[in-house]
Design a protein around this nucleic acid. Structure first.
Length: 292
DNA sequence: AATTATGTTGCGGT
DNA sequence: AACCGCAACATAAT
């Protein structure tokens, strides 16, 4: 259930683990997860990895034939790397049963890999809800895939003037506004609630109602929390998101409103419990006292 | 049994 | 055209 920091953490670890390795074989256990595979098999198998990029919440694995293997984890996708000894990236002791026994019942795709010295390893794509996908794109198709995305939230080019112009005349709530990938790419439900809490702005405000000072604050808090979450390896909630090593991230301990319904507000105290409301079908958590 | 879930897309209505 | 709300996708946990 990754947002940008979780996908970015996966990207970094995949870079370490995949670059230089060759894909010897791919097994698609659930067709929906990689429906193009049958027709594009020959463009993938036998290729090696040049680099691992990310745009928005999509991973972009660049192959030696300059095709792009794109992976979207959606809500419950996981990528777990295991070497030939069954050891996970980063070593250590496996923390969960499902990591001990791969493929699990939620494994949808398995990439069989081989490095230059002939050592074999595997990359497992697990996805309980089967919303996630793998696709193979040419350079042109890649451009097409990203054409409708706004700048990534951690893109230095993202600025207040852009946000204010996008927000002008928008009646939609500020929370739904910052979760719109056409405006900013990468903000999901957790960090949207958390950023608005840090910025002391109510999620119920309309996007156009924010003045410049408020938008400056909100942008700064979004950039800050995304950077902090990346540094801690993302947020693991209900054991769904895990890193390439199968281990949890560290940001869940820093959450101040998400999942905290009824708990006293960390900022203004026991008389003002955190509320949960619905916006655009998604849960929003906030403090009605100190967010206005 | 009903509700909830870290995401996106597509449809229909204003 | 731009904007907005809502169902759909598939599965498991509470």
């Amino acid at each position: 259930m990754p947002e940008l920091p979780e996908v970015e953490s996966v990207r970094k670890n995949l870079t370490t683990v995949l670059v230089g390795k060759k894909i010897s074989n791919i097994q698609v256990l659930r067709n929906k997860s990689f429906s193009e595979f049958a027709e594009k098999k020959d463009l993938i198998e036998g290729q090696s990895f040049l680099a691992v990029h990310r745009r928005a919440k999509i991973l972009d694995l660049v192959l030696s034939n300059h095709q792009h293997l794109l992976i979207h984890l959606k809500m419950t996708g996981q990528l777990i790397f295991v070497d030939k000894m069954g050891k996970r990236f980063g070593g250590g002791h496996p923390s969960a049963d499902w990591v001990n026994d791969l493929p699990s019942k939620h494994t949808r795709v398995i990439l069989q890999l081989i490095d230059k010295s002939g050592q074999k390893s595997q990359l497992f794509f697990n996805d309980m809800r089967v919303f996630g996908w793998l696709k193979l794109h040419s350079e042109t198709a890649l451009v097409e895939e990203f054409i409708n995305y706004g700048p990534d939230v951690n893109d230095p080019k993202l600025n207040v003037e852009y946000l204010l112009s996008k927000a002008s005349r928008r009646q939609i709530s500020i929370k739904q506004f910052i979760m719109n990938n056409q405006v900013i790419a990468g903000m999901g439900n957790i960090y949207a609630s958390e950023s608005l809490f840090r910025a002391k702005i109510s999620p119920l405000r309309s996007a156009k109602s924010l003045d410049k000072a408020e938008m400056v604050t909100l942008l700064l808090e979004m950039q800050t929390i995304i950077a902090e979450a990346i540094n801690l390896g993302g947020t693991t909630f209900d054991g769904h998101y895990v890193g390439v090593d199968g281990f949890a991230g560290g940001f869940q301990d820093k959450l101040m409103v998400y999942g905290q319904k009824g708990r006293p507000c960390f900022r203004c105290g026991i008389n003002f419990p955190i509320q949960r409301i619905k916006q655009g079908g998604r849960s929003t958590f906030y403090c009605p006292h100190c967010q206005s």
